[in-house]
């Protein structure tokens, strides 16, 4: 599904990612762990098409060169990024935003757009699964939401848009245990044989709830070690500094 070969990314002549390689197959859950400044967020930004990086190498998503696609085209193809810091968008109603987003993606895929009633039915169901306060959906997008609510809102968007590849950028940071469980349940319920996940995190904690197939350790812009879930535990015990 996703093949990253020799990815190199610089920002203002500073090297962030270098010789980065990763392959994710349909249905797999990969976790990338690394210390601050190792390039985790850069990776998720580049996969979503954020501007401002000098990139080389190759990223193929379902055999399509991602560098040729704009951010919204990547979303249409099924890439979703759950933001580390979801933005507050004043004046934009959450429900209306969700509907606009879903219908933009459905339209690009040549699917029928949902009318207001169909949409509300869907969003109600998904919000209930995530124990997301429905009343919040009538508020301005993320405005006045707590950190946990913002993260839940990301997972709600993910479950409504039903992407093929979901990238979770430190979704666990700032969540209490209860919220963490709800978020993890949300992710687990989306795990299907065709849906893949890339989970970016500092801590092993989230991986207690979302069992990854592979764990990769990212340091100084490249993967220095890959393994199974046990690698996360090893990392947790040793710390990043003593890991090499």
């Amino acid at each position: 599904m996703l093949k990253i070969k020799n990815l190199k990314a610089d920002i203002e002549n500073k090297s962030i990612l270098n010789n980065f390689n990763l392959e994710i197959k349909p249905g797999e859950v990969h976790a990338i762990m690394g210390p601050n400044g190792s390039g985790k967020s850069t990776l998720s930004n580049i996969l979503s098409g954020k501007k401002g990086y000098d990139v080389s190498g190759e990223i193929l998503f379902e055999n399509k060169n991602l560098f040729e696609l704009e951010t919204e085209e990547r979303a249409h193809k099924g890439i979703f990024l759950a933001f580390q810091y979801p933005l507050e968008i004043p004046g934009v109603n959450t429900n209306i935003f969700l509907k606009t987003s879903l219908n933009a993606i459905r339209k690009a895929r040549g699917e029928k757009q949902l009318d207001a009633i169909e949409f509300l039915k869907l969003v109600k169901l998904k919000a209930k699964d995530l124990k997301f306060d429905e009343e919040k959906l009538n508020r301005q997008l993320n405005v006045g939401f707590s950190g946990g609510e913002k993260k839940k809102n990301e997972i709600l968007q993910m479950s409504i848009l039903n992407p093929k590849l979901s990238i979770l950028d430190e979704t666990d940071s700032g969540l209490d245990i209860d919220a963490l469980k709800i978020v993890a349940d949300g992710v687990n319920s989306l795990r299907k044989k065709d849906n893949s996940f890339l989970i970016i995190t500092h801590y092993q904690r989230l991986l207690d709830y979302i069992k990854p197939d592979y764990v990769h350790v990212l340091m100084n812009g490249k993967i220095i070690k890959s393994g199974g879930p046990e690698l996360a535990l090893e990392l947790e015990n040793k710390g990043y500094e003593n890991f090499n």
């Binding site: 098409g49 954020k50 704009e70 919204e72 249409h76 968008i89 004046g91 987003s101 993606i105």
Partner: peptide
């Protein structure tokens, strides 16, 4: 950043810009 956020949800640049401007004026 806000435009990038909205585009990552499938809106093109023009739509994202319009949504932000409308939100700004709406209040």
């Amino acid at each position: 950043e806000s435009i990038f956020y909205l585009m990552s949800r499938g809106l093109n640049y023009k739509e994202a810009k319009k949504l932000l401007i409308n939100g700004f004026l709406l209040d």
